[in-house]
């Protein structure tokens, strides 16, 4: 059976990217368990008391402020209680109200800063809880491996925002290779780059080079160049390298930075990619392209010299 036919067509949920990764975390108001997966129901106690960590931090900050106000009120009341005359009582009451007003105004102005500080405290005091929560989420994702691969991938993708290790990345890549990938899917690449040579990652890069070239950036080119000999030995390795070289043609910066890679596979590039490369080099004749410009000229002479698409360029009188 064809490899593509054995893949499952799916509709992945869109991935919500947050400015800070901790914004993905939620905490249970009751049992203080942390999770990255739950919506409202706590995966630990099963109660619908999950709230975002920022909200919990803001609650903690407000709680601390209310305690301060309460202490101030108590001291104020004590001063009124200890007064000997009505005048003293009146003065103590007025001063207490003024001081409470000042405190309230200052607290209102610093609530945001205190909430951030409370968030830092929350993580520091609950290091073990946060770790346990993420590990519980990871186990929950692995439990549905093989039965609901799409949900499993979506869960691992969420966990992967906080837990950075190659094991999770490889599991995500393995799942992605079982799906029929499409251009409209919410896919990612750079967070999935692993440290070592991984055939499943290379296959994924090869697919993205065909359907979503814009995801292939510097780190991916560097990875491909680092493991080029191993990739060549892989099934369809040359096709993958050619597709990646084709993706590099997308931008002048990539062609210039990875000119060696582009040069080695320029001969196999599809016509549209080679035309783009030819036009780029033609447009910037003074750039230092190394041996790439010679190779492009050689391929042009050999394959496309009489091609009308290339002829239009040649008639303009440019040379490479």
């Amino acid at each position: 059976m064809n490899k593509a036919n054995s893949k499952t067509p799916i509709f992945l949920k869109s991935f919500h990217k947050t400015k800070y990764r901790y914004e993905k975390l939620k905490v249970c108001k009751k049992c203080h368990a942390f999770t990255i997966l739950g919506d409202t129901t706590c995966p630990d106690c099963g109660k619908p008391h999950l709230i975002p960590v920022e909200e919990q931090a803001a609650r903690n900050a407000k709680h601390s402020m209310h305690t301060t106000v309460l202490i101030a009120v108590c001291i104020g009341l004590l001063s009124i209680f200890l007064s000997n005359t009505f005048l003293q009582m009146f003065l103590c009451g007025i001063i207490t109200i003024v001081l409470l007003g000042v405190l309230w105004i200052v607290q209102r102005n610093v609530l945001e800063v205190e909430s951030i500080r409370a968030l830092d405290k929350l993580f520091y005091a609950n290091q073990k809880n946060v770790q346990d929560g993420i590990i519980r989420d990871y186990k929950a994702a692995i439990d549905i491996w093989g039965t609901d691969n799409q949900r499993c991938y979506e869960m691992l993708r969420e966990i992967g925002t906080l837990l950075h290790n190659d094991m999770i990345r490889i599991r995500q890549l393995t799942l992605l290779q079982t799906f029929l990938l499409r251009k409209d899917m919410d896919l990612e690449l750079e967070p999935l780059l692993v440290r070592k040579y991984e055939p499943v990652l290379v296959e994924y890069i090869g697919e993205l080079a065909k359907i979503k070239r814009d995801l292939i950036k510097d780190r991916t080119f560097q990875y491909i160049m680092a493991y080029e000999p191993e990739i060549m030995g892989q099934e369809q390795g040359r096709d993958i390298l050619t597709a990646v070289a084709g993706a590099a043609v997308r931008m002048k910066h990539y062609v210039r930075s990875y000119s060696g890679l582009v040069r080695r596979y320029a001969n196999n590039l599809p016509k549209d990619r080679f035309l783009r490369l030819y036009q780029m080099i033609d447009q910037y004749p003074n750039e230092d392209w190394g041996r790439l410009s010679e190779e492009v000229m050689r391929i042009y002479t050999e394959k496309y010299q009489w091609d009308p698409d290339f002829q239009q360029k040649s008639q303009r009188g440019h040379s490479i």
Partner: peptide, 27 residues
């Protein structure tokens, strides 16, 4: 208390630092 609040505001924590610390705890 007011001096403490103002001091905290002056030495405010950057959320990016908290993010980095959290990643450090988990990884």
């Amino acid at each position: 208390k007011c001096i403490q609040y103002v001091w905290h505001r002056k030495k405010s924590l950057d959320p990016a630092t908290i993010d980095k610390e959290l990643l450090g705890i988990l990884n």
